[in-house]
Simulated scan of single mutants.
Amino acid sequence: MTEHIVVVGAGYTGLAAAKLAAKWTDAEVTLVNDRDRFVERVRLHQLAAGQTLRDLPLADLLRGTRVRLVVDRVTAIDSQIREVQLTDGTLAYDRLIYALGSHADLDSVPGVREHAHTVATPGEAERLRADLAHARVVAVVGGGLTGIEAAAELAESLPHLKVVLVAAGGLGEALSAKARRYLRTTFDRLGVEVREHSRVTAVDADGLTLADGTRAAADTVVWTAGFRVPDLARDAGFAVDGNGRMVVDQALASVSHPEVLGVGDAAALRRPDGLELRMACATGLPTTQRAVRALADRLRGKEPKPFRFAYLNQCVSLGRKHGLVQFVRGDDSPREAVLTGRLAARYKEAIVRGTVLFERHPTMPAG
Rank of each mutant, 00 (worst) to 15 (best):
Y311S: 05
Y311T: 05
Y311A: 07
Y311L: 07
Y311M: 09
L312S: 14
L312R: 15
L312A: 14
N313P: 05
Q314L: 12
Q314E: 11
Q314W: 10
C315D: 10
C315V: 14
C315T: 13
C315G: 11
V316H: 06
V316N: 04
V316G: 04
V316D: 02
S317T: 12
S317V: 02
L318K: 02
L318S: 01
L318V: 04
G319P: 01
G319R: 00
G319S: 01
G319A: 06
R320A: 13
R320C: 06
R320T: 10
R320H: 12
R320I: 04
K321A: 15
K321P: 03
G323A: 10
G323I: 08
G323Q: 07
G323Y: 03
G323H: 03
L324G: 02
L324D: 04
L324Y: 05
L324R: 05
V325L: 07
V325C: 09
V325Y: 01
Q326C: 08
Q326W: 01
Q326M: 10
F327E: 07
V328K: 02
V328A: 04
V328T: 11
R329F: 14
R329V: 10
R329H: 15
G330Q: 08
G330H: 06
D331Q: 03
D331E: 04
D331K: 03
D331L: 03
D332C: 08
S333I: 09
S333P: 09
S333Y: 00
P334Q: 05
P334W: 05
R335I: 05
R335G: 08
E336M: 03
E336L: 03
A337E: 14
A337G: 06
A337Q: 15
V338C: 00
L339H: 05
L339T: 02
L339Q: 09
T340W: 00
T340V: 12
G341T: 07
G341C: 08
G341W: 02
R342A: 14
R342W: 09
L343V: 15
A344F: 02
A345V: 01
A345Y: 00
A345Q: 00
A345D: 00
R346Q: 14
R346T: 13
R346F: 10
R346G: 11
R346N: 12
K348R: 12
E349V: 09
E349D: 14
A350P: 01
I351P: 01
I351A: 09
V352G: 07
V352E: 15
V352K: 09
